[in-house]
Structures are given as structure tokens and as C-alpha cells.
Design a protein around this nucleic acid. Structure first.
Lengths: 147, 147
DNA sequence: GCTAAGCTTGAAGTGCTGTTTAAGGTCAAG
DNA sequence: CTTGACCTTAAACAGCACTTCAAGCTTAGC
């Protein structure tokens, strides 16, 4: 029953960490296997023993995921395990993601323009064929946009 | 050698259609199998015989893909085969994609804001932990789709 | 008529990501 | 003793758009 009673000051077991973070135990093991979480110490029974700050680490992983980072990118940013957290590396990673986002934004903007344009054309004359040239609009720059 | 010489007025073989559209033959068969392309007529030899307007159809499929439609969505829009092309269905499909795009745009915008914010915080005090509250910012309005 | 290129089929494989599940066993508490 | 949390590794899943494979046709040029 009480498998999940926080031992106040000390180590968390995987189920406790899972409960504390909202991440499944299997996901936590997965993170560990992929170097996101760092190998937990083990008790005499072989159970993982997480220090309380693991909660924050997991929180950071989930935050990063929400910011659109893949787990591989997260590992690139947070470092492979409990290592020092290289500031430069973090900045670089964040900026790279920012660039990625901007790239996607311009792709989406171009698609948006293209679709809007298409809807306009379809209101006039009902010919999808006339929309084909829009393809060039999507290639053209994928960056800026011009209606 | 001349397997790909357009027989002027008449039917295209799959390789010819592929050459004309820049889509591989295997992809064309794949499209057919999934109802995007409509079953081609067959010659006495069993080869597919495409009418010249298949080129346009394939062009539309590729255009749609560039607009971010999945093949399944394309099928929803263009109709399951050589059917009449339901105008209403097309409009609905395009608008649905437009909504999808806008959804993604707001997700990306939120991520962008979050990241920028994070970079700001990190310049001040070097504590990633202080960035955790940003998670709420991401929840705030854009559904948790990161893609 | 030989050979190479092109066509036919269906099934399975590919690449990517993030988990989850399954199978088989250990450990602790009621 | 039984339940439930934990351990391990390996494999499955899910979604997308194809590609590849194998085995066996046809067609075209020489």
C-alpha cells in the first residue's frame, strides 16, 4: 500500500518519483537508459534511489519537451547525466531550437498563405488545376512571404 | 530504351507518369492502393494505362502534401478516386487544414515566447530551476501538442 | 531470340520518436 | 500467502510515407 510514502528527507523510489512528476515509471527507466536521467543509486535490494532533486531534473525534461525539443536534443542540452550543466551548451541548444521554431513558422506561414490563396481562387472559378502554380509559391522561399 | 516515350495523344504507362511528375513508380502504386489515384485502366498486357490528366491529379496530390496535408487528408479532399470532386468537401478540407495550421502556429508561438523568456532568465541568474514555471505559460492557451 | 529495361503482385522492411508491454523473477508488507 | 511495487531485457506499438524484395511476366532494340 504504502509503496509511495515519501521517506521525508531521503531517497525516492521510482514509483515515488513517478508520482511526484506525473511521469510513468517505464518512462523514467527509459529516460535513464537514454542518458537523460543519470543512473540512480541502488539500495541493497537493487531498487533505484533518487535524490530529491531528480524531481526537478524530470521537470526540466518535461519542460523541454513542451518547448518542442526531442529527447535527443534534451540530452544535448542538459548533458548526458548529472554532469555540470554546461551553460554554453544550454544556450546553444536553446538558440538552435529557436531557429528551428522560426523555420517551422515560416513554413506554416507559407502554407497558410497558399491555402488562403487557394480558397480565393476556388471562389472565383472552380478549377483546382489553376491552383497548381501555387506549388512554386511554397518552394519559392519558404521563408518570407508575399501574397 | 524508349520505355518512356510519351505516346503523344494516348495513355501513359506508370514509368512515364512517374517521369512526368517526379514521383517514383512505387509511390504511384502506393497512391493507387490507398485510393488517392484511382485504379488505372489496364492494357492487354496488364500494364496500367494512365490518361494524360493523371499528371494533374498527381500534381494536386503533391501540392496538397506541400500544404501540409497527410495523404489521408488528401484522400478526404480529392475524393476516393475519379469521383466528381465535391466542392463542398474540398472547401471543408482546406478550411480544416487552415485551422490545423493556426493551431500549430499558436503552439509554436508559445514555444517561441517560452524559449525567449528562458534565455532572458538565464542571462540574469544561472538557474534552470527558475525556468520551470514556464511550463504553465505553455499550457496557458495552446494545447500540448509539440511537433 | 537474347538481353535489358519495364511492368505485375503482395508482403515486409525502413526511419523516426517516445513509450508501453510482456515475460520472468525479487522484495516487502499485511 | 498473496498482493503489489520493483527488477531486467527485449520486443511491440503507433503513425506516416514510402521503398524494397522476390518471382515472374512483357516489350523493345539489335
Amino acid at each position: 500500500m504504502n509503496a509511495n510514502s515519501p521517506a521525508s528527507g531521503a531517497a525516492l523510489r521510482i514509483g515515488e518519483l513517478a508520482a511526484a512528476t506525473g511521469v510513468s515509471t517505464s518512462a523514467l527507466r527509459f529516460y535513464e537508459k537514454h542518458g537523460l536521467l543519470g543512473k540512480a543509486a541502488r539500495g541493497g535490494n537493487g531498487y533505484r534511489q533518487y535524490a530529491p532533486d531528480a524531481v526537478e531534473r524530470v521537470g526540466l525534461i518535461r519542460l523541454a519537451q513542451r518547448l518542442g525539443f526531442s529527447l535527443e536534443q534534451v540530452r544535448g542540452i542538459l548533458g548526458r547525466a548529472g554532469e555540470p550543466l554546461d551553460h554554453q551548451q544550454i544556450l546553444t541548444g536553446l538558440q538552435a531550437r529557436l531557429a528551428e521554431i522560426e523555420q517551422m513558422q515560416s513554413t506554416l506561414a507559407a502554407q497558410h498563405t497558399g491555402l488562403t490563396c487557394m480558397l480565393g481562387k476556388l471562389h472565383e472559378h472552380w478549377d483546382l488545376g489553376r491552383c497548381l502554380p501555387l506549388a512554386k509559391l511554397l518552394d519559392g522561399h519558404a521563408a518570407g512571404d508575399s501574397a
